[in-house]
């Protein structure tokens, strides 16, 4: 465990807290992509299947449960709970996620570490996580202007990815046997997706002003 990894996980948790606060306190899921949240739920449920047979640390196992619980709670609230479910707009949030899930499933079957069922599922979850933010980014793009909490949410997720990238660089230089091609490739793609958002986030937040983020 290094500081980048730890801060990455913390900012991942922060993103859940921001989103849960937004939809429970604000009573609205406007601007939040249920599609992205469903993808995250699939990602965590498939990747953390190994909760049943792997134990790396209490920290890891605890966070796995937290991630599954938070993403499921978010999906449940937006899909089934009033008044939040009435604020979700299926016409705006209509990214065809089958075109993300399908290719990721095929990639998981073909490109994985050692051809065991769990390695295939695990690789699938890594690929799917890389693109899971796309429906959210497309939704923001359509709306043009992004509410503050929503922009903080995406920024926290982006920070989590950036910190994980630094964690990999750090581990590569400090550990002898550390090589993870699949994770590095998918993680770099994933972090790249946030670059445009961060540019606009920085533009609207600099100077201490708390203006909403505007996207072209």
């Amino acid at each position: 465990m290094n500081i980048f990894r730890f801060l990455g996980d913390m900012s991942h948790i922060l993103s859940f807290v921001i989103l849960l606060l937004k939809i429970t306190q604000g009573k609205s899921a406007a601007g939040i992509s249920l599609r992205t949240q469903e993808l995250y739920m699939i990602v965590f449920c498939s990747r953390y299947l190994d909760l049943f047979w792997n134990f790396s640390s209490l920290y890891n196992s605890f966070l796995k449960v937290v991630f599954i619980a938070c993403s499921s709670a978010i999906v449940y609230i937006i899909r089934f709970k009033s008044p939040q479910k009435d604020t979700w707009n299926p016409e705006l949030d209509n990214f065809p996620i089958q075109y993300l899930i399908g290719p990721c499933a095929v990639a998981g079957l073909l490109i994985n570490q050692d051809w065991t069922p769990f390695e295939m599922i695990w690789a699938f979850s890594i690929y799917l996580e890389a693109v899971a933010i796309l429906p959210q980014l497309f939704l923001l793009q359509k709306q043009g202007e992004v509410e503050n909490l929503t922009s903080h949410y995406v920024a926290a997720l982006g920070a989590y990815r950036g910190l994980y990238l630094m964690n990999w660089v750090y581990r590569y230089f400090t550990e002898d046997d550390y090589l993870q091609r699949i994770v590095w490739f998918a993680g770099t793609v994933q972090t790249g997706l946030y670059i445009d958002f961060f540019y606009h986030y920085y533009q609207s937040k600099r100077g201490g002003l708390s203006r909403p983020v505007k996207l072209p």
Binding site: N54, S56, D177, L179, R181
Partner: peptide, 10 residues
């Protein structure tokens, strides 16, 4: 270098 099999990241 060996490809890492143990999953110690989240």
């Amino acid at each position: 270098l060996r490809e890492m099999v143990e999953k110690d990241e989240l």
